[in-house]
């Protein structure tokens, strides 16, 4: 089993185009270290390569040049040490809530008893008690999202990857689930990597926000979020530091003139 922090070392990804000279540079010379237990967000406009970067960490995409490592070991493919919460949840519609959550546990080869214990724990954690035998289509969007969280956490990964996990939710549900996710992260000690296009979400949750720019996809800057933890929902509307950071990220994403960044 691999262990240790993630390091993305001078990684580029080029997709061959349909026509000659049609190759697309999805990522260009990206370097990034992600500490153990860190909550890191990646934000940027579409085409900036943020999802490609996430998929690379997951092991779905291999770099054209450069390397992604966990500790000393290069990531060669998906592994149960890194699980993912997919966009639109990607729950299996034919499996019950309990079976969806148990999927990663079956994949790990846990016994029936071990699975049942773990599922019960994560059903509690995700506040899904009483819905174990429901199918995903019988649940609200917020509950599906919580199943997705539970499924990703149940196999006890070191790193949880999230691809716009809150994109399909209304803003009230989104706020509530962000707070739940934050509480889960704080207790888990795991590394969370979130891809989002929502500035406030990135800010509220993260230790650092990686701002990416498109054509070619690259890291524009990395913003430290010095807000103390645990973070209260009040931050979003009251905290002057939060507001200032929000303005700064907004400007970065909208290419406003700004003081030079260390990169």
């Amino acid at each position: 089993m691999t262990a240790g922090p993630l390091s993305i070392d001078d990684v580029s990804k080029t997709y061959a185009g349909a026509r000659p000279n049609g190759a697309v540079r999805a990522l260009s010379r990206v370097s990034l270290d992600i500490g153990e237990g860190e909550f890191l967000s990646i934000i940027g406009p579409s085409g900036c390569g943020k999802t490609t970067l996430l998929n690379m960490i997951a092991g779905f995409v291999t770099p054209s040049t450069g390397v992604v490592r966990r500790g000393a070991v290069a990531i060669a493919g998906p592994g149960p040490d890194r699980t993912m919460m997919f966009q639109d949840y990607a729950l299996f519609p034919w499996l019950t809530v309990a079976d969806n959550i148990a999927f990663g546990l079956r994949a790990k080869g846990l016994s029936r008893r071990e699975r049942e214990t773990a599922v019960a724990r994560f059903v509690d954690l995700a506040r899904l008690k009483g819905f174990e035998d429901r199918l995903p289509h019988e649940l609200s969007g917020g509950m599906r999202q919580r199943v997705s969280v539970a499924r990703a956490l149940a196999p006890d990964p070191d790193i949880v990857l999230m691809d716009e996990p809150f994109a399909a939710l209304d803003s009230l549900t989104r706020d509530a689930l962000q707070e739940e996710l934050l509480a889960i992260w704080e207790r888990s000690g795991k590394t969370f990597v979130l891809v989002t296009h929502n500035i406030e979400e990135a800010l509220f949750l993260s230790d650092r926000v990686v701002v990416m720019a498109p054509r070619p996809g690259r890291i524009q800057t990395i913003v430290e979020i010095p807000l103390p933890r645990p973070r209260s929902p009040d931050l979003r509307t009251r905290d002057p530091v939060f507001m200032a950071l929000k303005q700064r990220l907004f400007d970065l994403l909208h290419d406003a003139p700004q003081p030079s960044e260390g990169r």
Partner: peptide, 26 residues
């Protein structure tokens, strides 16, 4: 997406066939 979920969690071919391929195509 379903294939990626299965790969992400490290599902064996047997698990993939039983819990993903067969129910999806049923």
């Amino acid at each position: 997406t379903y294939v990626r979920v299965a790969r992400c969690f490290g599902a064996s071919s047997g698990l993939f066939i039983r819990q993903v391929l067969i129910p999806a195509t049923l």
